[in-house]
């Protein structure tokens, strides 16, 4: 493990393994989603190389699925790109939340970690990083989640492309994806403080009401409404006993 960011192979391997273990159920759930995206890419008429390549190069399932739907209805390229931008704006939030935790990694590894960022790595990281006082372990855990996730995503969507429309659609297997996010949401709220609970609940309610907004804007509107609600709740309860300066800066998404 010459590239171990903390120079300690044992710690790195342990963190990586723990990340893999955490990600295992999520990998099972992502498989149907990958298959669906692969099938969709073939159905809109992308050549096999592009249908497969998309999952490797873009590596963002929701945006890929949206783009494929837009291609199917003949949308102009500009609309597809703006949709990609809006759907993936949430990655800026994740990037900001992760940055303090992943500072131990050298620049090239941060580029790799950024490329491999997913909703799932954000969700698992926010659950786990409180338990890792040492930053090298966080980097190892991040990669332990992210690398197998990349392998599963590209493999399952490639399978979807190759199998085409021959897959059974009656089983609603794609429903596994919202169930995974449901678990992560509930766990984030159960383990969180009162303002975290408020943020999650408000975001959920607003998202349901804002769903008709175009380009999945409802997701961003709801997320910001939830974050604002959490901040307002926190402020309303008076100034929280929060350490100032560097300690706060490093705390990131863990409540």
């Amino acid at each position: 493990m010459g590239g171990a960011p903390n120079g300690d192979g044992t710690t790195f391997a342990a963190g990586f393994r723990e990340g893999m273990r955490d990600a295992l159920p999520i990998m099972l759930a992502v498989t149907p989603f990958g298959l669906v995206v692969g099938v969709a890419a073939v159905e809109v008429g992308l050549p096999v190389a592009q249908a497969i390549g998309m999952s490797y190069i873009v590596y963002a399932g929701t945006a890929q699925l949206a783009a494929l739907q837009l291609i199917a209805v003949g949308s102009p390229v500009a609309v597809i790109l703006v949709t990609t931008l809006l759907l993936n704006l949430r990655f800026v939030l994740y990037s900001a939340a992760f940055a303090p935790h992943l500072r131990a990694a050298p620049g090239w590894l941060r580029v790799v970690m950024a490329f491999l960022m997913t909703d799932q790595s954000m969700a698992l990281g926010s659950q786990r990083y409180g338990r890792f006082p040492e930053r090298g372990a966080k980097v190892a855990h991040y990669l332990g989640v992210a690398v197998p996730m990349g392998v599963v995503w590209t493999t399952s969507s490639t399978l979807g492309v190759l199998l085409g429309a021959g897959l059974p659609t009656g089983l609603s297997l794609e429903f596994a994806v919202p169930l995974v996010f449901l678990t992560l949401w509930v766990v984030a709220m159960v383990r969180g403080t009162a303002p975290v609970w408020v943020a999650g609940a408000v975001a959920g309610g607003v998202a349901v009401l804002a769903r008709p907004l175009p380009f999945n804007l409802g997701l961003l509107v709801a997320a910001f409404a939830g974050i604002a609600a959490g901040l307002v709740w926190e402020t309303r309860r008076g100034p929280a006993p929060r350490p100032s300066g560097a300690a706060t800066a490093r705390r990131g998404p863990t409540p």
Partner: peptide
């Protein structure tokens, strides 16, 4: 601190 719960709820 509220990003994960809010984004997950919105999804």
């Amino acid at each position: 601190a509220y990003v994960p719960a809010a984004v997950l709820g919105a999804i």
